[in-house]
Design a protein around this nucleic acid. Structure first.
Lengths: 171, 171
DNA sequence: ATTGAAATAATCTCGGA
DNA sequence: TCCGAGATTATTTCAAT
């Protein structure tokens, strides 16, 4: 084998190659990943074996990725959530990637976004209370080299959507 | 039956009553909800039937909530993500809850946070491109009654954590 | 690509410790 | 609360279209 012309893909599935049926499956599973293949099959009007085959292909193509449960935060002692809006010092602007990688290691961090605009980073944290938030902000962010300034926004309420929109014409 | 003294719970499970073993199960399932009961049982050193019983209890107590798959955004035509930092006009400050409920109906919205600080809302949106972002911001946000001002932050990179930290002493 | 049927593996129930 | 054995469902494989 002199050269791999498959470009690393195991089968003929094109990365962009999903149809309406695949999109319907993705929609259902984003809202409830515990649906059985039989239930999904009934919903989309296909045999369970065909539905299973499609799901397998979507997984193999890395279109379907991880599956995660939601847990009630209160049970774990989480009483407060916040967004930390971080501004980096100029000399750290070049090493933002490693900064992101460090930030996401902190257990209280849920996500970290590198953004344009007034701030450089937006970090979602979950904490016990305001005291914990203060300690976390000081110990892990304000005093971290490269951080110029932090703005803290406490989250009073939140809503989530689990299904991504379909923004592309399908074959 | 004159009065329901069980307060709607089917068993004796207290909302706050989880132990170290439960916490270990929650940790595993947050990172990978496709683990089988047998695999979880092996990991935590319990029989599959006992592990299953604990998971059932965690579900009944609504400690374990929804399960959702992640989907590759590119496949759906999503080429750009952004945060919209929204400031509301004074007269809409009282109806923020219904505002949140309206915002989360927009298909391009992933989450909407009601926050303290410089802005009132932080909204995560997924779009095709900058043109789509412009249209979405104008049609669904800037021109919406109650919105005073919007700041747009384009997301260049992101990291996520799926496991919540354990911030409480367990029995 | 889709199907039904068969094989395998998972979840769930329950009686007893 | 934990366990194991049996019942029930689900997933996976596969030969054929």
């Amino acid at each position: 084998m002199a050269f791999d012309r498959t470009n690393g893909l195991r089968d003929n599935t094109l990365p962009a190659g999903i149809d309406r049926t695949d999109a319907a499956i993705l929609g259902l599973l984003q809202n409830n990943a515990r649906l059985s293949i039989k239930e999904i099959a009934a919903e989309i009007g296909l045999a369970p074996s065909s539905t299973h085959e499609r799901i397998r292909r979507l997984r193999d193509a890395d279109i379907l990725r991880g599956v995660h449960v939601e847990v009630d935060p209160k049970v774990l002692g989480i009483g407060l959530e916040a967004l930390l809006m971080i501004e980096l010092s100029k000399h750290r602007r070049s090493t933002v990637d490693s900064f992101l990688d460090e930030v996401i290691q902190v257990p209280e961090v849920r996500f970290a976004f590198l953004v344009t605009g007034r701030h450089d980073l937006v970090v979602h944290v979950v904490v016990r209370d305001t005291q914990h938030l203060k300690d976390l902000a000081l110990d892990n962010f304000t005093n971290r080299p490269g951080v110029a300034r932090i703005e803290t926004s406490i989250i009073f309420d939140a809503r989530r959507r689990y299904e991504l929109p379909l923004l592309r014409q399908l074959g």
